[in-house]
Design a binder for these strands. Structure first.
Lengths: 96, 96, 96, 96
DNA sequence: AACGTTGAAATAGTTC
DNA sequence: GAACTATTTCAACGTT
């Protein structure tokens, strides 16, 4: 048999694909669940449009916080590069 | 007690929002998982870009696929393109 | 001639495509320009990574402001729907 | 005056940032313009999704296209797919 | 039921 | 060449 390696490769690939498709199904189920919660909320009289906007804003807040932290880290690194210079030390003493 | 209804509403709304945000977190986790499988596949030497395309094709049913391909030919003909592609030539022979 | 309509369509399509490709070229030129400004800044001793982060944060601020305004509008609409009820009037009097 | 250098640096940085943000605005405007052309095309009855694909293909050179198509076949073969597509059949006859 | 809007996903490009 | 960013594309949702 010539194609032993090829077949193994094919099997391997197939296995990856199946794992991915399985996970995507689970993900889709969650999407459905989320939609159902919105439906419930709507039935309970809430304005889902507002709900979506509020949730989006909360996500943005979280994202912004992360960005700010990342920026801070970069700053710290930049200062770290200067840490052996007098100005760098003075700056570090402010944030440490 | 004046605000019984109001408070319940607020509680109710809060509960909906929390359920949604919880589900979205789970979804995000799955997205991460999927990304990791793709990373594994990449390490194993597979071309993940192609994998993604194949998975997308598997989702799409055959009818839709054919429709898209046919429409594509029409557009490319309108532009006078396509003559130098093997797959394109085969396709052209069908529509010409 | 049979294909008058078809030809006109083809011409029309071609014209759209050319306009788009023209605009995309201009856009690409701007992308290049931006890259060059970053290069200049780097040569002048600035940390472009930090610059990018700061610019991203400024964009997020702008986006968030817009989101908040949009949310406010939705709120106002929601209140508007209640405007003929006593509670709605009381609420409106708070934001007006 | 102590901070001459610092101030110049700050001014310099500010100027870079403003140039970048200005260019990004222009770029965004072009993106909007492109979107509008697609809208026009859609109103004229064209399928913009296909238009986008065709434009992408025009960007890609022929060699790259063929390579991608060939690899695609290999993967789909590994999964035992592809038998029911007209383009696929033509392609299969090339690699089988 | 098409339309635009918006959020998510994928791809391309860039930097280290 | 690997990671990160930015852009672009795709899909879902509510709306009209």
């Amino acid at each position: 048999m010539n194609n032993v390696v090829g077949n193994n490769s094919a099997e391997h690939l197939k296995s990856f694909m199946e794992r991915i498709e399985r996970l995507e199904e689970e993900k889709k189920a969650l999407t459905t669940d989320i939609g159902e919660v919105y439906s419930e909320a709507k039935s309970a009289g809430f304005d889902t449009k507002i709900m979506r906007k509020v949730i989006a804003l909360r996500k943005m807040d979280a994202a912004k916080r992360q960005e700010q932290e990342a920026l801070m880290e970069v700053y710290m690194n930049a200062l770290g590069m200067l840490a052996d210079l007098p100005l760098g030390q003075a700056a570090l003493s402010k944030v440490a």
